[in-house]
Amino acid sequence: METFVDGIAWLFDSANWQGPNGVAVRLVEHVWLTVASVLIACALAIPVGLWLGHIGKGGALAINVSNVGRAVPVFAVLSILILTPLRFSVWSTIIALVLFAIPPVLTNTYVGMREVDRDVVDVARGMGMDGGQLLRVVELPLALPLLTNGVRLAAVQVVATATIAALVGGGGLGRIITSGFGRRDLPQIVAGAILVGVLALLVEGLMELVQRRFDPLRRARRAESRAGSDAVAAVTGS
């Protein structure tokens, strides 16, 4: 238990926050790697997912990419990238992060598009909407909850993957843990682990808020349930 206290004390020592290997630098590194990778993954995966979902093809690809992503170890991909001409550049890390962020975004976007009620799509077509309008006005808003869920999963995944980059000499908060191992400094290891854990939980919470904001049907659903309970109240006379 006292090691945890030592770890927290390590976090409150301002000396550990300064310098090129300090917490501040590593935290900024971790956050920008995460943001950049999630954005790149979204830019690649969302259009493909929307398009495959819109034309209703490539389902096996969109679903299986997630299974493959689960089976391939992050550490293996990072190690392989390090031995390519990319070497220890920041691109090795970013490519690995993007590769592991694509599956959840792609799969969720596709499933979100396919789960749009077929009747609604037919009605929209009957009203004379063309493919582009259908996608923009009907399918995309209805697929948005699952799409943002995919982005949330990707963000959490990337925060975790970015720590593993430290095992092969990449940047980010994982470095505090690995350098703690190098110096056999248990309080530093624990402090790094607490930082990484707190960051991951923060990102998860933040993305959950974003997800709720981006749910266009939330207000409608709430109004509906209120109307529903009013109706029940009217019927039962309570």
Partner: peptide, 14 residues
């Protein structure tokens, strides 16, 4: 599950 593996393994050490 949200806590990255590197951190979880480290937190088990103490």
């Amino acid at each position: 599950y949200t806590i990255p593996s590197l951190a979880l393994f480290s937190l088990l050490l103490p």
